[in-house]
Amino acid sequence: MTRQVKKIICIVCPRGCEITVELEDGKIKSIKGYSCPLGKQYAEKEVVNPERILMSIVECVGGDLPVVSVKTAKPIPLSRMIEASKALADIAVKAPVEIGDKIFENLLGLGVDVIATRPCHEQRG
């Protein structure tokens, strides 16, 4: 039997609670230190498979700015963040783009889409 105690900083809200998770053979035994249910959920996830939202930019052709800002519609595994950012290096979209437009589908086969977070309008004149 292996016992393990993991300390986690909750990143769900600015309060940043320090949550202590006790693990036994990889299974969660107890969770302490959170101040709301969101924190508990987060800690459960974080000890097994930490996930984050990726934000980046993608080239926007013919736009009023050269790039459009994007994010993953859902969190993706932390370990694959840079790989995911790299996957956005070779693509470009065409203006116009509106907030929420799907920019890229099924990033790295994770079943997560990439969506625009800033409009990019057609360049005039």
Binding site: I9, G16, S85
Partner: peptide
């Protein structure tokens, strides 16, 4: 996230001046 190397964050105070959650998700991660 864009492939550059960050060699460090220098802080004059004895503690980080941003939110702890940002220390976690921006530096420690």
């Amino acid at each position: 996230l864009e492939g550059a190397e960050v060699v460090g964050v220098v802080e004059i105070l004895p503690y980080p001046s941003g939110l702890i959650r940002n220390v976690q998700q921006c530096l420690k991660d």
